[in-house]
Design a protein around this nucleic acid. Structure first.
Length: 495
RNA sequence: GGUCCUGUGGCCGAGUGGCUAGGCAAAGCUCUGCAAAAGCUUCUACAGCAGUUCGAAUCUGCUCGGGACCUCCA
């Protein structure tokens, strides 16, 4: 079954054919590092992480480019830094690159927590001013941009006359021309809908670069076009990002790149849906932003507890990436427990021994198990249906636990099926979904201490000295270590 | 106001016209010194109304509700 992806540009699922066989170029809009990453940011990066991982698993060599937007309009802690910065404020606190560094570091830290694979290239906007200027010059040469008062604007009306502007976002040009809004430089544009490619910098503007049109800074959309073109070429396979970027960001990217490169930039546009809180998109105006640091610490009024990065990752995997997902502490708690159950089943599965006898196979069970396993690839090929794969894994969990407990005979499924089951769980849980063990039990000394406690407890249990055995278990529980008596008389623990 | 999406059992969520996704919670049972875990069982829903169809959560229309985008936005 071939991989099918939903292409936002054509609004349908399409069979995925990479431009260069065996290779995939993927560009994903990265963060603006003017603030701390919040829960909403987690979704696109986790989504495109499992897409990247899956394409890699399918055998593609993927070049994954994700930019860092470190130029433009900056704020800190809700205060508009740039507009009101007098010289005093500049001296007192803000070196823009300090902010950029701080939030870039925080972003990288969060991505590490989520176990996201690092992109192949992570270019910064400020590192590509030259490329952006070159691109703007080309667009001017092509006749689709004009300079006014040291700023350069894209001539949207001219573009729209011969190109399908608005197709990606389902926008109609006439409507756009009617929108009224007060933006800086509005009166100097030929048309209200025209967007800036280069803006002349006011004297107090901190971040500024020399250009053929005077000192200024790049517009909001040109960086992605310039960097995508540089690292992935005029046409590449996948362009991704959040749905809210479709307009105007991605629409403008298409326009810029099409004029500059005489080719539409991306073959497939993939957009993830939003995370909402109580049905509302996360946003400063709603006062419902949960930063990732707050998420992991539980330090937020909307949170009843801390949630691990893996719980958040699992929570996102449980719904389809194109569906909106509503956040609540309750929903996260459910995910936390579900992940724990699934991961424990996986740990059990890893230790299951292949049976020696091929007799006694439960054909009905064997058939079902094989079907559930084989569907993993089918579901993923069907526009990355991660939720369905997890559902199948939960169907398989009782089988795995049943074999371990002895409810199901060890030879009920064939050895080859068991091996396949082990392989597929490993591939999907770890390699594709990027989940990792959240418990840390690899400490050698702790292992030894635990073994000692388990031995003591076994002895006291054998003597029916339950006071001692309960004391050990209760003390460990209060330390956050869970001790379980196994059916076979053994004991296992985790935390 | 315009464009688009959406409304699934107590909660979260998957759903390609027919074959009760799954998870969490809850209840009962089994196992167990007691727990925990695990296993088994129960809970069969698709906003409302009308239509198409042998058959609709799934298609169409209307009504009501929710959301996104139209402005920086993941």
């Amino acid at each position: 079954m071939p991989l099918k992806v939903y292409n936002s540009y054509t609004r349908q699922k399409e069979v995925f054919h990479s431009i260069t066989p065996g290779h995939v170029g993927m560009y994903v809009c990265g963060p603006t590092v003017s603030g701390e990453s919040h829960l909403g940011h987690a979704r696109p990066y986790i989504t495109f992480d499992f897409i990247f991982r899956y394409l890699t698993y399918k055998g593609y060599k993927v070049r994954y480019v994700r930019n860092i937007t470190d130029a433009g309009h900056f704020e800190e802690e809700g205060k508009e830094a740039e507009d009101k910065v007098g010289k005093k404020a500049i001296l007192e606190k803000l070196e823009p690159m300090e902010l950029v560094q701080k939030y870039t570091n925080l972003f990288h830290w969060a991505m590490l927590q989520f176990n996201c694979v690092e992109p192949s290239i992570e270019p910064t906007a400020t590192g590509h001013i030259v490329e952006q200027i070159n691109m703007i010059e080309k667009i001017i040469t092509e006749g689709y941009a004009y300079e006014v008062n040291s700023s350069v604007y894209f001539d949207l009306k001219k573009y729209a006359a011969t190109h399908d502007y608005g197709k990606l976002s389902g926008r109609v040009m006439d409507e756009l021309l009617e929108t009224t809004r007060e933006l800086d430089g509005q009166q100097e544009k030929r048309d209200k809908a025209d967007f800036a490619l280069w803006k002349s910098a006011a004297p107090e503007h901190i971040m500024r670069w020399k250009s053929p049109w005077g000192e200024g800074f790049p517009g909001w959309h040109i960086e992605c076009s310039a960097m995508a073109t540089k690292y992935l070429g005029a046409e590449f396979d996948i362009h991704g990002g959040g749905m809210d970027l479709q307009f105007p960001h991605h629409e403008s990217e298409i326009a810029q790149s099409t004029i500059c490169n005489h080719h539409a930039p991306a073959k497939y546009w993939i957009h993830n849906n939003m995370i909402t809180i109580n049905g509302k998109k996360m946003g400063k105006s709603y006062n419902n932003v949960i930063k990732l640091t707050e998420m992991f610490s539980g330090n937020h009024p909307l949170l009843t507890q801390a949630f691990t990065p893996m719980t958040v990752r699992f929570f996102i995997l449980q719904s389809h990436y194109r569906s909106p997902v509503d956040f609540s502490s309750e929903a996260l708690q459910a995910s936390e427990k579900a992940l724990k159950r699934l991961w424990e089943a996986y740990e059990v599965l890893k230790k299951l021994q292949v049976g020696t006898s091929e007799k006694g196979t439960d054909v009905a069970l064997e058939t079902k198990v094989l079907q559930w396993i084989n569907e993993f690839d089918d579901f993923m090929d069907d526009d990355f249906s991660t939720a369905k794969i997890l559902a199948n894994m939960f169907e398989l969990a009782p089988v795995i636990n049943g074999i371990k407990d002895g409810h199901i005979p060890a030879n009920a499924i064939t050895a080859s099926t068991l091996v396949l089951l082990q392989q597929q769980f490993k591939i999907y849980l770890e390699d594709v979904f990027g989940l990792t063990q959240t418990t840390s039990g690899d400490d050698g000394a702790l292992q030894g201490v635990m073994q000692l406690l388990i031995d003591i407890r076994k002895e006291s249990k054998a003597k029916k000295d339950y006071a001692t055995s309960d004391k050990i278990r209760n003390q460990l529980t209060s330390l956050g270590i869970e001790l379980k008596d196994e059916k076979d008389g053994g004991m296992s623990w985790n935390r």
